[in-house]
């Protein structure tokens, strides 16, 4: 299963798969040969099609290869379902959300919805206008899944379809979920969404085997939610929301390394939380979230709410 290309989504997908296959094949054949494809293909008895494709070789030269000699590699070494349930050893993922930088641009939400094929009416990342009281200051609060260390959703799941990984991520196995929605009732952060309808998906995504690291493809009658994008982490990249935010609201990192980054700034997690008085949501419930918030002080933007009346 090709996890990362799923999230690039849409039409670009087959092409990217194809190119990846080529580069891998090139790497496997070694660096010295100018054109490993033609010789290997001729040994296999392939007939040239006459259509040439230009490729960049591993030594940096541009080579022309007949298209028929190229074998697309569909599979990048994939991670088994069991390994996905286990998580990445030695890691403890955390997120820090700096409320002083959020102006409700919703770029995080858009990129997340796009990457995970979230249905139109639903969002994994929800951005709330918060105001504790009429005399206190309003602010925007984006919420992801809190990836609690004492996850109420995992406690109540009757079939282990939602689970806690060793790296702290709370995942969902949509192939196992029975759709009882007890986890949705149990989650105090309203983070979970249910696939009430058949998800609208491009055929190539639909054909993929489900991965709990990409949460794709979403399946009807099952629960979905923010997965902290462990597939991006495996590639050494940041979750979609983190890289999509132009204001650097989201910091993502590893508590064991004590580092979090929003892409442009990389800081010590413990110092950030200490210096800016980071906190977690609904601490009194004892859920122990992995998402920390920095209070909305010295704000970059004034609070403006176009949907004022909707607060409920």
């Amino acid at each position: 299963m090709n996890a990362d290309s799923v999230k690039s989504g849409g039409e670009a997908l087959p092409r990217r798969n194809f190119l990846k296959g080529i580069l891998l094949a090139g790497a496997a054949a070694g660096c010295s040969t100018k054109d490993p494809f033609t010789s290997a293909a001729k040994e296999g008895g392939a007939q040239p099609s006459g259509e040439m494709v230009q490729l960049l070789s591993t030594t940096g030269e541009i080579i022309e290869v007949d298209k028929a000699f190229l074998k697309p590699t569909e599979q990048i070494p994939s991670i088994t379902g069991m390994a996905q349930r286990m998580g990445i050893e030695g890691k403890k993922f955390v997120m820090v959300i700096d409320l002083s930088r959020c102006k409700n641009l919703k770029k995080c939400q858009e990129s997340c919805n796009h990457a995970h094929f979230v249905s139109d009416a639903q969002n994994w990342i929800k951005i709330y206008p918060m105001q504790e009281d009429e005399h206190t200051a309003p602010y925007w609060q984006p919420t992801t899944c809190m990836h609690c260390d004492e996850p109420p959703c995992v406690k109540v799941c009757p079939v282990d379809a939602t689970f806690k990984r060793i790296d702290g991520i709370v995942g969902i196995d949509a192939d196992r979920c029975i759709g009882c929605r007890f986890c949705m009732a149990a989650c105090p952060y309203s983070t979970r969404v249910f696939n009430w309808d058949t998800p609208q998906l491009p055929p190539e995504v639909l054909a993929l085997q489900y991965s709990s690291e990409t949460s794709c493809p979403p399946k009807i009658g099952t629960v979905s939610k923010c997965d902290f994008c462990p597939d991006m982490v495996r590639k050494g990249e940041l979750p979609h929301c983190v890289s999509a935010c132009p204001n650097g609201v989201f910091f993502f990192g590893d508590m064991n390394e004590d580092v979090v980054t929003n892409g442009s700034e990389t800081v010590r997690f413990s110092e950030l939380i200490r210096d800016k008085a980071g906190y977690r949501l609904m601490e009194d419930l004892g859920t122990k979230p992995s998402v920390y918030y920095l209070p909305p002080v010295d704000r970059l933007f004034p609070f403006k709410n176009e949907l004022q009346s909707e607060e409920g």
């Binding site: 079939v159 196992r176 979920c177 029975i178 929605r181 009658g221």
Partner: peptide, 17 residues
């Protein structure tokens, strides 16, 4: 009837926690 995936009812016994 309330289950989103009644076809997986047997999961309750196979994976029960």
């Amino acid at each position: 009837v309330d289950m989103g995936r009644p076809d997986r009812f047997w999961h309750l016994f196979l994976y029960s926690r």
